[in-house]
């Protein structure tokens, strides 16, 4: 399984739907996508991880990089994830304190802070 990416706009938010495996091989594609969005002026991102089967520290690094980029423009990066095995890696690394993690795209899109 490879990585699939699709984006859509909901109000002032850009939702990035990610599917498949985010690892050392596929993470660069996600990084490119996030960089491109920020360069194009999308500073409020919602990354929907419900379709993600696997996430490793390389993927975490890309998400942290994305967060740094949007913050430089006073933007936000929110995650949507309900999968315990994916949430676990955020907890182990302490990143649950860094990323707002929501249970649905609707909730993430509606969130302000």
């Amino acid at each position: 399984m490879d990585l699939s990416l699709s984006t859509r706009t909901v109000g002032d938010r850009t939702v990035v739907e990610v599917g498949g495996e985010i690892d050392v091989y596929t993470a660069p594609k996600l990084r490119e996508q996030l960089v491109e969005l920020v360069n194009d002026g999308s500073f409020h991102l919602v990354v929907d991880m419900e379709g993600v089967d696997f996430l490793d520290s390389t993927g975490l690094g890309v998400l942290v990089g994305g967060l740094k980029r949007v913050r430089a423009h006073e933007g936000s990066l929110r995650l949507v994830c309900n999968q315990e095995r994916i949430l676990k890696i955020f907890r182990i690394t302490g990143l649950t304190k860094v990323f707002p993690i929501h249970t649905s795209v609707e909730e993430a899109v509606a969130a302000t802070d």
């Binding site: 490793d56 520290s57 975490l60 690094g61 890696i89 182990i92 690394t93």
Partner: peptide
């Protein structure tokens, strides 16, 4: 840094 992140995940798991 990336190296340490990987090791941190391993030791956490």
């Amino acid at each position: 840094e990336e190296d340490e992140m990987g090791l941190a995940v391993i030791s956490g798991l």
